[in-house]
Structures are given as C-alpha cells and as structure tokens.
Design a binder for these strands. Sequence first.
DNA 1: ATGAAAGCGCTAACAT
DNA 2: ATGTTAGCGCTTTCAT
Lengths: 368, 368
Amino acid sequence: MGTAQPVDGNYARGMTPESPSLHAGSGGAHAATLQDVAREAGVSLATASRVLNGSARKVAEDFRERVERAADSLGYTPNVSAQATARGRSPVIALLVADIADPYFGQIAAGVARGADERGLVVTISITERDPERENRILRALRGQRPQGLILAASRADRTGEAGAADPADAELEAFSRYGGRVVAFGERPGDGSGTRAITIDNAGGAEELGRRMAALGYRSAIGIGAAEGVRTSDDRLNGFARGFAAGGGEMSRIHRGDFRRESGTAAMAAALAEGVEPGTLVFGMSDVVALGAMSAIRAAGRAVGADIAVCGFDDVSASGDVTPALTTVRVPLNDAGYQAFRAIVDDDWTQAPLPVEVIVRGSTPGL
Amino acid sequence: MGTAQPVDGNYARGMTPESPSLHAGSGGAHAATLQDVAREAGVSLATASRVLNGSARKVAEDFRERVERAADSLGYTPNVSAQATARGRSPVIALLVADIADPYFGQIAAGVARGADERGLVVTISITERDPERENRILRALRGQRPQGLILAASRADRTGEAGAADPADAELEAFSRYGGRVVAFGERPGDGSGTRAITIDNAGGAEELGRRMAALGYRSAIGIGAAEGVRTSDDRLNGFARGFAAGGGEMSRIHRGDFRRESGTAAMAAALAEGVEPGTLVFGMSDVVALGAMSAIRAAGRAVGADIAVCGFDDVSASGDVTPALTTVRVPLNDAGYQAFRAIVDDDWTQAPLPVEVIVRGSTPGL
DNA sequence: ATGAAAGCGCTAACAT
DNA sequence: ATGTTAGCGCTTTCAT
C-alpha cells in the first residue's frame, strides 16, 4: 500500500473498440464485464482477472493469450468503481483549487495532471471559490471517494493557524490520512502533526530578493497590495518584500488589502490612487493577477505604468509577459509545484525537490 | 435513468467529522461503513441505506433519527465507488481538454465544475495535449469509469470529418453513448448519428462580424494566423473573418498556420514579418492566445502593435484586456459554454441555450 | 498454474 | 414500514 498502481493494467494495450461484439446490443446494452471475458475465453474469473491486471505472471501463455483475445474482441474495459470497491482504494487524486480559471491554479493543475497521467491515476477537481464552508462540504464529500490523495491548493490550509483554534476541516483532513489517504497542502500547514505534506514555495525569499532589486533600481517608496492578514502566502510575500526593500533603503508605506482576484487588485489600486500616489512610487501586488488588476486601475486613472507608477507582482503567469510594459515579477515554477504535489502523494519516501524562484525584471519597473 | 442524481444524499447535512469514534482506530483504521452505522443504530442495512440516501421517505421518524445520529457519530461517508458499482452508474463527468493551463480551457472547465457542483457530481479532468493518440488512450481508460458523461473540448472531435474516414475514437465514443453515457463535444461533430451532443459557438458569425468591423475601421489587408487546415474552430474563424472582411472591401492576403499555442502565434507572426508586413496591415489571430503570441513577435521585431501593425483575436480571455494596446477580439462566454456542456449531459431534454458572441474593439485596432 | 468462492460496501428487489 | 437477501463487477484468499 502507499505506492500508487495503474488504474488498469491494460491501459496501453492497443485494443480495438470497433470490434464486432461491441456493436451487438443496441439500446441500453451493457459494457462487457470480466465475466463475459472469462466465459468467452473459457477460463475462470480469477484467471481472467490475473491476466488483465499486472499481478505477478502466473498464467500460462496460451491462457493469457486466450484471455487477451477475448478482452480485445469484447472491447472490455475494467470497471474502475468495481475495482475500487474490491481493492478498497480508488485510483483518484482529488485536487482542490479556488478557481480553475485562474492561471495560478491552472498551472498547478496542469502539473498535477501531468503526474497523474504517468501513473494512470485520475484527477478530480473541485472548486472552493475560496469559501471555507464550501471547502468543508467538498472535503467531506471527497472523503467518500476514498482518494489516494488530496491536494489542497489555496484553501484555508494557507492560513496562519491560531494555536488551538480547532478548524473543522482539520478533523476531516486527519480522517483522510488516518484512512490511508495522503494529504498535500500548498503552503505550510501550521498544526500538522498528521501526515499532511506541504509544498512550500519560497514566497518570503523571492519577495525579499524582489524588494532588494527594486530598491537597487532606485525606488524608495512602495505600496503593497495583498490579501487579508492571516493569509500566509500573502503575508509572506508582503513581509518578505518589505524586508528586502527596507534593506535597500526603501520603505513600504502602506498596504491595501483584498483577496487574490484581479478585481481586488483593481479596487485596491483605485483606493490607493484616491488617497494620492506620488510619481516614482512602486506598487507591489502580492500576485501577478492582482498586479495586473492594479495596472488596469492605474491606466483607468489616467496614470502611466512604469516611469510614473511602477508595478511588480509575483508568480510570472503567462499574461505578465504580454502586458506593456511587461510586468516585473518573481517566477514560480507552478507547473513543477503541481507535479511535486503529485509526487508527494504517490511516493512513500518523498522530500520536496527545490522549487527555485527567480526575480524577473521587466519594463513595468524601469530604473529611476 | 438519464437524470443525474446527487452523489450523496447527505452531502449537505452538517456532520461533524470530529466525533469521538473517528479517533478510535489508529494506524490503518478503516472508514465507517453502512454496516457500522446500521449496527450502531440497531437497524437493518436497508433502513440505514434508505435514510442515508434520498429514496422517498418511508422510514419512521425515530428510526431515521437513530440512523442519522449513528452516521454522525461514526463520521460516516458513503463509499462512492461502492455506490457506483451497486447502482451501476457513477457520479462522474469526465472532461477532456487539451491543456488546462490554457485560459480558454480553464474558463470552460470552470463552467463545467460550476454545474457539476450543483448536482453533486464529480468532474475528472484529462489532458490530451492535442495528441490524438493520447486522446484515444484516455478515452479508453475513461470508459472504465463509466462516467455519466464525457465532455470533449478541443479534441479531434473538432475536425472536419472526411466522409467514411473511420476514426478509432468514433467507435469509442459510440460505445460510450451506447452504454448510457452522454457525449458532449465542443464544435459540431460531423458524422454524429450517435447520441453525441454538440456545443456550438458561433465562430463563423462572430469572426464575420469582426471582419466587417475591421474593414469599416479602414483596414484593407489582413494576415490570418490559424491552426492546421481541417481544424474546424480555426477554419470557421478564418473563413468567417475573410468573408466579413471581404464584404467590407478588405482582403485576407495570406494565412500562416500552426496550432493553438501561444508560441505558435509567435512563430507564425515571425514568419510573416520575415516575408514583410506593410504598415497598416491587420493581423487576425484565430484565438487570443495566438494573437497575444503574435503581438509579442511584432514587438520583438521592433514594430509597434496598433497604428503600425494592427492585431485582433478571438475569445476574449482575460489577458486580452490587460495587454497594451488592449486586444480587439470577439467575446465568447466560455464559462457559460462549459456550463451548457454540463447541462447537455444531465438534462434529458436539452437544447443549447444561445451563446452570444460579441465583437469588442480595443486599442490594438485603431481606426485608420 | 487454475478455479471456487468469499468478500468489498452498497442498492434494490422481494418478503414480511 | 422494516428486514432479508441477492446481486453490482471485481479481487483475492484458499483449495486443488
């Protein structure tokens, strides 16, 4: 146990679905079962099962062939649910994201999917919409799937835990790992005594370096745009940036808070502009998506991004390279991070491979 | 049959997972089963089952309460796989996309997920990477899940079918619908006598209108950037645009082909530039992602987007509004389209709701 | 090496 | 209204 197995031994065996018997039944026919295959091949259920799944070779060559031919001609595909109930474990990895249309999660999901495919695992995806209650509901329903693993991206997992504050989700997660499922969370989980594994991105370090570089460019005053206090990713990035920026002689004058959505960045920036923003000020959006929103607010206010108001973000989602001026940011290997999460689920002895972050200076932060 | 049912009657009943008995077993404990609940409640398996699932109320109030209390205290969650094997149908919708990190598919996926959540259905996601062989493999493996439905976004479904050319995937899809699953494809499927339902986006119409508008803006010469010939979405958009543009007195001089990826747009545009592009020329990228790639190639070549070389695209992904100049495009309600696909699966009597496309003129195509 | 048979957790007749 | 019981399709002892 622990090591994932292919959902289906014959995953790659080139069966031809257009075999005759497939076209037999019309209306509500039923898919061929193992029974059907066994009968057709004139062998027992057990033998058919042994052939069609990777159990150590114990079947005589001629039997094996008969079975394979039968399976082929019937267009047999193992019923995953049945396999799961029989085996007591199902070949699914459940992925929880806040919003799959957000490029940040899209990248992560792509990485997870890439890994899952390698192992013939199925990935299910659930959307939390950043609503904790919704997340709890989903978590509970997910447990019913008895997935091999659970990947929490952008959930309340990403919060600074108040010591002793019992999160109902915690119990749920514990139940998960107790029953053999592995839980992987993006961002450190505070009170995790349980088997939860964490995928950590060096948010603080990357942001600090960014802050330093921005100070070196000549910026001295910055406005931060972040999520609510207590959201770890946001806090780490904001604090890291402030530290690096201060080290270079700059100062983060104020922080406007919202959430991770683009509109939030727009609104925060609009608020900042309403209070007045000096030319030469630097705006640090805690994520590219938010920074992009801020850029649009800056333009909407008739100001210019760059020499007038500089902007930088974090993540390096693909849109960041497309805007003009292109957005200065910190590149995060999100796809790899997703892949890592997958590995954290399937590898018994897992240690996170480094996920190097890298500052990328572009036109949105010209030297002063 | 046909109408989807919630995966779990007690999906929303607020159970508290942190109940005592949950913490009983340590190591490889097993999740509470219906048996456990029935025993704890002192009722039969059948009664427990009846209570815990929505079957018409036939259970006395006190029994019902006893069962619910027991389920609650044991932290019971129905085993979805077991339910699926017993019921003969599983609560999953399988979504096939080319690349989940692509905003086009991300939006669609979000719409599908939104719908699935309404019905308590699970959505699994598979990545084809636009590789037909890979897609076939996935299709075959997916059949094993016996999903209620299959949503094909960006697959070879989106190809002009050569009459009689037997696509191996076709047989697979037919098998799907024969066995009760519903198949929904984005883009018309040519030879679909089978139960395949199609989500159609008015690519030709939207592109035609775009072409007209661009001609009205004064453009007379356009370069198209599209996918390989035979890819329906691309063809429809290219042809529609050419028609509208011609109607307004313009002419699409040449077409550079590639695929749907951003880099493909960059490469195609680079090729076009190498051949020489007159100022005042309009570039129509068959999708925003491709158009964005083209914009970057234009800049890389030291040319300017807008008055020098105008660019327009199709889809209105969110990045299109962020670039400067912002990209003129045709807005497609992708999220709604995904939701529609979901409905096409769960509604027996389904007819596609209109998915209005709308031309959005922005700075990348200034009037001449 | 092969087969018979007892589960896996749940549903759905069929009794009572 | 409740309980009994035979499946669902597959895996996996346990005999042979």
